[in-house]
Nucleic acid binder design. Sequence first.
DNA 1: CTCAGTGCAAACGATTTGCAGGGCC
DNA 2: GGCCCTGCAAATCGTTTGCACTGAG
Lengths: 133, 133
Amino acid sequence: MENLPNTMRITSQRQVILDELRKVTSHPTASEVYDMVRKRLPRIGLGTVYRNLELLTEHELIRKLKVGGEQKRFDGNAAPHYHVRCVQCGRVDDVEINPLLDLEQKVATCSGYEILGHHVEFEGRCAACKTTS
Amino acid sequence: MENLPNTMRITSQRQVILDELRKVTSHPTASEVYDMVRKRLPRIGLGTVYRNLELLTEHELIRKLKVGGEQKRFDGNAAPHYHVRCVQCGRVDDVEINPLLDLEQKVATCSGYEILGHHVEFEGRCAACKTTS
DNA sequence: CTCAGTGCAAACGATTTGCAGGGCC
DNA sequence: GGCCCTGCAAATCGTTTGCACTGAG
């Protein structure tokens, strides 16, 4: 669980996955990443995409979002930040508010846990879904 | 998506599921609920458990937690509150801090979403896992 | 040459669903 | 009698993994 090999070769597959992920702000799912990447590497396998998303996450070059939706999503922005998810169409956007770091201390005290991090996810209806009601 | 039948019969299966869920504070997964319920209704099917957990959630008698772990968990306490999850053993506990309702207004303004709710999940190591290092 | 990394396909685990029978109203 | 609900089993979906092969160092 805590053995990150400090060596990781930059293969073309990894480079393309990272590129594509940084190019968008849409927090794509693994198979969306697969589709994006396949345009440049048509023979890449879905397994490779999963393996590399996992590896890039372990090396903290990207983030894995386990938000309320069904599938995991991936974020090319590795800095901590919060998200809003549209319950209707499933899109996920970033939220521009500052992390609530002071809460972690409070929770550590009252729960007895050693707190390592936290996630905040808002849910609602995005602008597009609001109008198409 | 928004058609809750306002009728829901209280079958013995539903009653037992709800009872068992309210009896514990452990936020069990569907198959843990299945095991708990099977002690009282040995012939119940896993499909029925899933169907009824879903139904009880729609009627807001329980809550479905889509936290960072792999499986969904269920909470007999339908009131909004936050959770801490142990990254080591997977247990999920309640957090005794007040909901940050003021944030929703702020996020609505800056994101353009109509905000319907939010979740906060802390992660860390529980007291037991801290000592067994 | 070696070995991490890959493509492919099969395996897996959680959840959902189709169906035929059962039992409440 | 009609229909909701159930048990059961098969299907589905996202994800993981085993394996043989490839290619960079």
